[in-house]
Design a protein around this nucleic acid. Structure first.
Length: 929
RNA sequence: GGGCGGAUAGCUCAGUUGGGAGAGCGCUGCCCUUACAAGGCAGAGGUCACAGGUUCGAUCCCUGUUCCGCCUACCA
């Protein structure tokens, strides 16, 4: 198959062709009955609404590297793919569609709405999967799962019921984070905190028994005063504790509220007197419980002021009733000012919470919700990480994990949306005396109607104080009263609830499947730190609870991808680099390689297009090196040949050393180290030196044996490099590999994916050869340097005079003089201890050798003196530095012997070099006169 | 408020038993040398944030400071 290659690498066609080939041949498929050692990763399921961004690209590149590496290394590899139903996000998408048609989900009803979401999923939900394929991800697509699959949904119900039966799931009315736009509760971690500069308002609350005097409270949210039910002061605050038990009259209302004592109050802050609004502030809610205060909910679900607050002045109500809470704030301030209750307003920085999905300001909101009790689950999960059953890489993230787990709060899992796993709980209409039930096609529904009385609106208040019947399948009759009027809880579960089960639900749990026993616990989870709480921690808890084992052994936490300026990429900032555009432009391999080379632990990736372009060039370099190799290998190459030349032995040594390093790096998840090592090897060792050194051998017609050996080593090195590189750059490696003649173990294999990952042959690692080649390279580099500095164009041929002591050194140079000549582009070379320096010559001083390039009649000679002087200055500085060290008696006495010896040796070398250069300068100066 | 991470070449970053300051990109000079101009060869460029300490010796270990990120928290 080794036809001519194009002059440049064209990724597009190559990528499509090979991906289709791999899929068709089933090379991604894991065999659950295989006897090979298993290695499994579950993909962090992307949202079905998503499209591939750089975070995905990084995440999946790293997983694919591990997966392809392990697969080649002989493991039975499973990469379990799938997508997440993304409750709120997906519901938003479909609701937007409806809005464009002038509809709302309430108009079409729950059943039709959910059907519509499914339809949308079928049509558009596969986008990201296609995009993952373009990246080269070698997932076992036959096993692709979706969190709303029948199987996974069953697992969700199973878990819910079992946790409920054990008392680990419960319902309660509490303050929750409420998104007034999504109209649903959120868990604590779904709220993003943001610092804003606001104001701190000082408001007068007059005493009931003596209206002439007052307390001043300070608040950032004056509008919530309509829900105040107390004022708190610190019990030890001498300014106020005499007032404890008295009452103040809440401004703008006829409400009398008590002054209470609570240690939560910070004497230093504000005035030391705090208004307490138990229904609208988390602290106040707790305080309210401690003091048995009334909870007055002043807001509707969409964060408008309830217009029917009984004891608020009618005039005030008229102005703020039905107003959005933020507008109401302005109004309340205005009224307070007018009525002289407002003392002052100070600038004040504080934090507000926003919905992580839609960035709307969240409201603490009183409502009944479902919770998971976390304490016992967390305890086990902490132990598992403490005991290293699951290990975070880098380790530092374990602290983050512990910090959260040790202060964990119960998890609010119910969401007031329609797309998701509906909670498997039913309520008996009769037992619970539920009003407002209406018949619909899908059964009984709790509801009320909008103002026009036509649109049914979901009303979560209905759920207060109900007794649920929790079961996997819909009950026909109430077990208590036998009534058949049962309604299912309207809420669905937090999407993360089903994600938490992902490592075992995807493998068939609760059925005892072969897959489960083979691949659970999985080996590695690759994810970003931003979902350690959302996902990783919860998977560990659920895995331990239902599988009695951790879901994965290693958690590799990778960085965030930012733009070149370090900004988080976001659509609103307009700084997103689209991975698909990058793939189109530079190829998937270049993108993958960029991401892996930059994935150093514990640091964010600042991605720039230049960098990707640079690695596209690397692809091209590989391509052309392969082109060269193929052009120079005609017919069969021999196997098992002895008689390697020095560069053959050198490249084999370097190659095996590289293999060792890469394997070690991959073992430690150092993708950057591995990528950089192979880049360095292929470009700067294989291409720059080995191929160049191979040219004289390959071009010479007269020695077929030598040529054949070099051809063999060349192909072997290239082929092995490709296998080393394959996990990083799957496409180009396959394309080239397919065209190469195969040697040994890899002959006859149908894909590089199936070829074994190289393992180092230690016997070929040869320090002596590497040192010898380094000496040759030094000579060559020196000559090239003279060429460069003296401006001798390549077209001008030069001679090399190499003065070296007779013996090993001179022999080495003499033996390989052809290489030196070729690589330094010299027409002649003389080597010996008795070489005399010509008068007009450039010189370079090496360890144990001197180089003279005669320049008479070659080039203008004026440049030589300044060149040598520059060199001299450099050496003088170095000597000075070492001198200081060696003059220090403490250094001589206390430093390790070998270090001292090394310094002394260096000193000797440098001094010698210095003398020779000084000598050269003297001669030059003499010549000038 | 608490915690974590970072500060090394113009840019982005590597750099662990503490002893040589490095890479890629960019820049400069020369070169279309029959694999590659998406290339070759050569070169310039750094008080390793600042101040102390430990040590014969500190980019590295310790303390403090400044600046920048991020996470977290009930000062209303």
């Amino acid at each position: 198959m080794s036809q001519e290659l194009n002059k440049t690498y064209e990724p597009k066609d190559v990528e499509n062709r090979w991906y289709a080939f791999w899929e068709e041949k089933g090379l991604f498929h894991a065999d659950e009955n295989s006897d090979k050692k298993p290695y499994a990763i579950v993909i962090p399921p992307p949202n079905i609404t998503g499209s591939l961004h750089m975070g995905h690209a990084l995440n999946n590149t790293l997983q694919d590297i591990l997966i392809r590496y392990k697969r080649m290394a002989g493991y039975n590899v499973l990469w379990m793919p799938g997508t997440d139903h993304a409750g709120i996000a997906t519901q938003n998408v479909v609701e937007r569609q409806l809005a464009n048609e002038g509809l709302t989900r309430y108009v079409i009803g729950r059943k039709k709405f959910v059907e519509r979401v499914w339809k949308w999923k079928e049509e558009s939900g596969g986008t990201i999967i296609k995009q993952l394929k373009r990246l080269g991800s070698s997932c076992d697509w036959n096993r692709e799962r979706f969190t709303m699959d029948e199987g996974l949904s069953y697992a969700v119900k199973e878990v819910f019921v079992r946790l409920y039966d054990e008392g680990l799931i419960y319902r309660a009315e509490r303050l929750i984070n409420w998104c007034p736009r999504c109209l649903t509760a959120l868990s604590d971690i779904e709220v993003e905190h943001e610092e804003v500069s606001g104001k701190l308002y000082y408001i007068r609350y007059h005493f009931v028994d003596d209206p002439k005097i007052f307390l001043t409270v300070a608040t950032t949210r004056p509008e919530t005063m309509l829900g105040d039910t107390a004022v708190a002061v610190h019990p030890e605050d001498e300014r106020y504790n005499k007032f404890i038990g008295k009452e103040v009259l809440l401004p703008l209302t006829s409400r009398r509220i008590p002054i209470i004592a609570d240690a939560i109050v910070d004497i230093e802050f504000g005035t030391g007197a705090v208004k307490i609004t138990p229904a609208h502030d988390f602290n106040d809610f707790e305080t309210g419980i401690r003091h048995d205060l009334k909870k007055i909910n002043i807001l509707s679900e969409n964060a408008h002021i309830n217009p029917y607050l009984q004891d608020v002045e009618l005039e005030v109500m008229k102005q703020v009733g039905d107003l959005h809470v933020h507008k109401a704030r302005e109004k309340v301030i205005h009224i307070l000012k007018k009525k002289d209750f407002l003392i002052k307003a100070e600038d004040h920085k504080h934090t507000i919470g926003k919905c992580y999905r839609c960035k709307t300001v969240i409201e603490p909101y009183l409502s009944p919700q479902w919770y998971v009790k976390m304490e016992t689950l967390a305890k086990e999960a902490i132990k598992a990480v403490e005991g290293d059953k699951t290990r975070f890489i880098p380790r530092g993230w374990e602290n983050t994990y512990f910090e959260w787990m040790r202060n964990i709060k119960d998890w609010c899992i119910s969401r007031q949306i329609w797309w998701g796993h509906q909670i498997p709980a039913w309520y008996c209409v009769d037992c619970n005396k539920i009003d407002f039930v209406r018949e619909t096609e899908s059964g009984l529904k709790p509801c009320h109607y909008d103002d026009e009385g036509t649109v049914p609106i979901y009303l979560n208040i209905l759920k207060k104080n109900l007794t649920p019947i929790v079961t996997k399948t819909a009950p026909l009759k109430c077990p208590t009263c036998g009534s058949s009027k049962l309604i299912q809880d309207e809420d669905v579960l937090d999407t993360w609830f089903s994600s938490a089960l992902w490592p075992f639900s995807t493998l068939g749990w609760p059925k005892k499947t072969t897959e489960l026993s083979k691949f659970y616990p999985t080996d590695t989870l690759v994810t970003g730190f931003d979902i350690i709480f959302f996902w990783v921690a919860r998977m560990i808890m659920m895995g331990l609870k239902f599988m009695n084992d951790v879901p994965f052994k290693d958690v590799y936490i990778h960085a965030l991808v930012r733009d070149a300026d370090g900004q988080k990429m976001s659509k609103s900032r307009g700084n997103v680099i689209d991975p698909l555009i990058m793939i189109d432009r530079f190829g998937a391999d270049a993108l993958r390689f960029t991401l892996s080379a930059m994935a150093s632990p514990g640091r964010d990736i600042k991605l720039s297009e230049d960098r990707i372009e640079g690695y596209r060039n690397f692809c091209n370099k590989i391509w052309n090196a392969s082109r060269f190799a193929l052009m120079n290998v005609k017919g069969d190459i021999k196997k098992d040949i002895k008689g390697y030349n020095i560069f053959d032995r050198w490249i084999l040594s370097r190659l095996n050393r590289l293999t060792k390093e890469i394997t070690a790096s991959l073992q430690e998840y150092r993708f950057d180290e591995a990528a950089n090592a192979i880049y360095q090897f292929i470009w700067h060792e294989f291409c720059d030196w080995y191929l160049e050194a191979a040219k004289p051998v390959l071009y010479k017609k007269d020695n077929a044996d030598k040529r054949n050996i070099t051809q063999t080593v060349m192909i072997h090195s290239l082929e092995t490099s490709l296998r080393l590189l394959h996990p990083f750059m799957p496409f180009i490696t396959e394309e080239i590999w397919q065209r190469l003649p195969k040697l040994g173990a890899v002959s006859g294999m149908e894909s590089i994916m199936l070829a074994p990952y190289p393992s180092a042959d230690e016997s070929l690692i040869n320090d002596a050869i590497e040192e010898e080649v380094r000496l040759l390279q030094d000579v060559i580099s020196c000559v090239r340097n003279i060429r460069g500095e003296m401006n001798i164009p390549p077209s001008v041929e030069i001679d090399i005079l190499l003065k070296a002591a007779e013996g090993k050194r001179a022999d080495l140079y003499r033996q390989h003089s052809e290489y030196i000549k070729f690589l330094a582009k010299a027409k002649g070379i003389k080597i010996g201890s008795d070489i005399m320096k010509p008068h007009i010559a450039a010189t370079a001083v090496l360890k144990d050798a001197e180089i003279y390039i005669p320049l008479e009649g070659v080039v203008n000679f004026d440049g030589e003196l300044p060149r040598l002087q520059k060199e001299l200055e450099k050496i003088k500085k170095e000597i000075e530095f070492i001198n200081k060290k060696l003059a220090n008696q403490d250094f001589i006495n206390k430093a390790p012997k070998d270090v001292v010896e090394k310094e002394k040796e260096k000193y000797r070398e440098l001094t010698e070099k210095l003398n020779k250069i000084e000598d050269g300068i003297k001669k030059l100066e003499a010549l000038r006169i």
